[in-house]
């Protein structure tokens, strides 16, 4: 399968990238590791006239852990996974990154690309000819949403593994354009819409992800997928909590792959604050998450089952935060040993 024709530009600085992007933001796309964009271009889901390659911008590959942590958008997932500071301070992020795609894809894929990953749908992640055979769909070249034919919006799935983990850890992101710079909470970058899934303007570049110092925080990430590698999540949960002894002071739970955006579970935070993690409390929080999850029939597995598993995932995550030994359960459920070459 061949790439369509496009014009390639390689800026050396964020400023150049921003001004080139501003020239024609509607039909220009940014290329980081290319592990999402290139397949999409081959399948003609995304056909930018101009592609701006970011890999020459040294500033984007910095990983700085002096005050909190600043991760450049161009930092690869492998770099993150090999970083001892990330591993010890932001366990949930580390776990999520270690389970993304495959080792080869993690060598290419960046954190910025992961955050901006196109939403996914089994009616959409198909070749041009396949989509022609269903007369296309609302997200690209067509009108109907085949997942829910009466839906007036696209229900494609947010499939990024890192974003839920980052949101649970309170990440903010920096967006730079020719017009200026803005910082926003990562959650604010997302909209629950399969087509306009980012609030990022087309002329903006994501440059940095900032994580606060994790003093007192513990975090974890549980991912469900068919196989131990390659597969995108069909449901996932990131949980982070600040503890005082056994007692939770504050907590955040974010679900992945059950909506068109990473799904914050606010009820969980409220319910957990000030509490000790008992089995009953864990079950109640799992119910909160279950109620919120809205998987659709556009990924691997049946949607009813995916929704059900959200309960188990949340419960497992909370048990791990409580300090239960979940290693065996994790290997069984995630089929991934969380071992990586350092």
């Amino acid at each position: 399968m061949r790439l369509p024709s496009y014009r390639y530009r390689a800026p050396k600085t964020v400023e150049d990238a921003a001004s080139w992007l501003a020239e024609s933001p509607g039909d220009t796309m940014l290329l980081a590791g290319g592990t999402d964009l290139i397949p999409n271009m081959k399948r003609r889901q995304q056909v930018p006239a101009t592609v701006i390659g970011l890999r020459g911008i040294a500033a984007l590959s910095r990983l700085d852990t002096r005050e909190g942590t600043d991760i450049g958008a161009g930092v690869t997932l492998t770099t993150l996974v090999r970083d001892e500071r990330i591993r010890s301070k932001y366990q949930g992020l580390w776990q999520s990154a270690a389970q993304i795609a495959t080792p080869l894809l993690r060598n290419m894929g960046t954190i910025g690309g992961n955050i901006c990953l196109d939403t996914r749908c089994t009616y959409y992640d198909q070749s041009f000819e396949w989509r022609q055979a269903i007369n296309f769909c609302m997200k690209k070249d067509g009108e109907t949403c085949w997942v829910a034919t009466s839906s007036d919006r696209c229900l494609a799935v947010s499939s990024t593994d890192a974003a839920p983990a980052l949101m649970a850890l309170g990440a903010t992101v920096r967006l730079v354009s020719a017009l200026g710079t803005r910082d926003l909470a990562l959650g604010g970058l997302y909209a629950n819409d399969g087509m306009s899934y980012l609030t990022r303007r087309p002329d903006e570049i994501l440059t940095t992800v900032h994580l606060p110092e994790p003093a007192g925080w513990r975090s974890t990430y549980w991912k469900l997928r068919r196989r131990g590698s390659f597969d995108f999540p069909v449901a996932s949960v990131a949980a982070a909590a600040r503890f005082d002894g056994d007692r939770i002071i504050e907590a955040r739970i974010v679900l992945g792959a059950v909506a068109s955006c990473p799904l914050d579970v606010p009820a969980a935070g409220t319910r957990l604050a000030g509490q000790v993690l008992t089995d009953d409390l864990i079950a109640a929080v799992a119910d909160d998450a279950y109620a919120l999850a809205k998987p659709m029939d556009n990924t691997d597995f049946e949607l009813v089952w995916r929704k059900k598993t959200v309960r188990s995932l949340v419960a497992s995550a909370l048990r791990e935060l409580r300090g239960d030994d979940m290693r065996e359960a994790r290997v069984r459920l995630a089929r991934h040993p969380l071992l990586v070459v350092s």
Binding site: G53, T78, L104, N107
Partner: peptide
Amino acid sequence: GQPLLSCLVVSHE
């Protein structure tokens, strides 16, 4: 020195 997927690397890069 890093193993990458050559099917996803554009020639320019």
